[in-house]
């Protein structure tokens, strides 16, 4: 028994890695991937959906993406789901990035989806590209979008793009979307949402989500997608099977594995403690 407990406590880390690998690969196989378990739509996701739905067609919105490939697992799926909805709603949007990779990654995603929804770059959407110094940029953008942004990633003056018609300052922006793995979403609150009362919807990684619930409660964020689960819920609302839905079973399997390991680790610790106590008691008894 003691040996078994010791083995459980000191199991090679590579055994745990192998178990994790199995849990995230097997559910991709057709036998498992055909099992569909729905998720319940959380209030924060529903609020986000309702906010986008409430924006009139042809309104101009800022679609901020600040993620790199390092968080693509969550932010990629969220971006795809939100972009689908924005295109479905026929909203005009400009991609704005404060991460250098995001401009290219979002461009690729928009180019992939635009055919499906009859969108074209320049006409219905544009890419403002990578920018630095959020504080300075937003402060100037709020007053004058055209002179602050100047050109899109293709080098075209933005005032010449049909997508930008009638858009001069923050007052012409009807919604802010931010998909962001860091806490720089607060700049959107401090410089655009707060002063101009433009609704902000936010899609953080799950790590950042707990912090953002504070802003959701205060109404500074109008709706939120909580990590990959948020993206799964959103695809379910939109009734599309995208990246997130395909990942759902893997996410469940890996979570169950970790919960199982946490419980086993604690049981092993408790049993070992008890065994050590019993040994000590026996030892003391022998001495007496």
């Amino acid at each position: 028994m003691v040996k078994l407990l010791h083995t459980l406590q000191t199991v090679d880390r590579r055994v745990l890695y192998a178990l994790l690998l199995l849990s995230v690969t097997l559910p991709f196989m057709p036998t498992f991937s055909n099992i569909k378990v729905p998720v319940k739509i959380s209030p924060s996701t529903q609020k986000l959906y309702d906010t986008i739905e409430s924006i009139p067609e042809d309104s101009f919105i800022i679609f901020g993406t600040d993620w790199s490939a390092g968080t693509r697992g969550e932010n990629g799926a969220q971006t795809e789901a939100l972009m689908r909805h924005v295109m479905k709603k026929k909203l005009r949007f400009a991609v704005l990035c404060f991460d250098p990779q995001a401009a290219t990654l979002t461009q690729t995603m928009a180019e992939k989806l635009q055919k499906q929804y009859g969108y074209s770059e320049g006409e219905n959407w544009c890419n403002w590209g990578y920018r630095v110094q959020e504080q300075l940029f937003f402060k100037a953008l709020a007053n004058n979008i055209v002179s602050t942004v100047k050109a899109d990633t293709r080098g075209r003056a933005i005032e010449t793009l049909p997508v930008m018609r009638g858009v001069t300052s923050a007052k012409d922006v009807k919604l802010l979307v931010n998909i962001n793995p860091t806490n720089s979403y607060t700049y959107y609150i401090q410089y655009l949402q707060g002063p101009y009362h433009i609704p902000l919807v936010f899609a953080p990684t799950a790590v950042m989500a707990p912090e953002a619930f504070n802003y959701l409660d205060s109404g500074q964020i109008a709706g939120m997608l909580n990590g990959l689960t948020g993206a799964i819920e959103y695809e379910q609302i939109l009734n599309v099977v995208g990246r997130a839905t395909k990942d759902s079973n893997c996410l469940s399997a890996a979570h169950l594995l970790i919960i199982f390991l946490m419980i086993m680790g604690n049981i092993a610790m408790l049993l070992e403690k008890r065994a050590a106590k019993a040994n000590a008691a026996m030892h003391l008894g022998g001495q007496v």
Binding site: V24, T71, G73, E74, T205, G227, D247, L251
Partner: peptide, 12 residues
């Protein structure tokens, strides 16, 4: 939440 975030990256 962190566990979900990290797992999502591996699943990707």
């Amino acid at each position: 939440s962190t566990i979900m975030a990290r797992l999502a990256l591996l699943i990707d």
